[in-house]
Design a protein around this nucleic acid. Sequence first.
DNA 1: TAATTATGAAACTAATCGGTTGCAAATGTA
DNA 2: TACATTTGCAACCGATTAGTTTCATAATTA
Lengths: 104, 104
Amino acid sequence: MRRDIFQAIADPTRRAIITLIAMQAMTPNAIAAHFATTRQSISKHLGVLTACELVQHHQRGREIYYQLNIHKMKELDQWLEQFRQIWEHRFNELDQILETLKQQ
Amino acid sequence: MRRDIFQAIADPTRRAIITLIAMQAMTPNAIAAHFATTRQSISKHLGVLTACELVQHHQRGREIYYQLNIHKMKELDQWLEQFRQIWEHRFNELDQILETLKQQ
DNA sequence: TAATTATGAAACTAATCGGTTGCAAATGTA
DNA sequence: TACATTTGCAACCGATTAGTTTCATAATTA
């Protein structure tokens, strides 16, 4: 069972959950109230998000509060870094490519 | 058939292809040479990447050159933007806490 | 022209995924 | 104590996925 952030954010419901709990911790019931699906399916999504450490949770009585682990989101940012460098310098390269194609 | 960048980058082989063709356009054969899989499966991955516009291609004789559409990668960056604000904000809060501790 | 090369498309398969239903455990409340 | 609430877990199902094999098409080359 592969569990990485890329696979985790592939699902639109999970992305919505991530956005939802980004600002404040929420219980599975409260989260499920925002979606047209069952609490159990939300629970499974939270399981996936927890497995890849994108969310953390702490129990308070019988309620469990889930919250985004913002540091893990940085891994995505780090992966993007290599491409950010490209798109910042692409204009020069693109000019060269177009010039090369024109000459051929 | 859902085709978005999040689902496209969920697969590790596709992420490797993206990195591979980020700097220069490559043919399916050349790309497949970098992986322990068949050319046909690479062709399918390129189909997924093309469907969500993450890669572009141009034919040259009987060869087809695939290249990363760097602009599409920006959509990922834009989605991350909301969280970048959060983690910068929390770091500011952390700075304030550390500053307060230092003064005590 | 005939053979070779580069490629995409279709059919098939095993594995995985997202969702539902049912149930058990733990906690809180009357 | 008896009952309600909150939650995770397991079994199951239909759809999707990644990969392989086979085949057709188009372009190059001998």
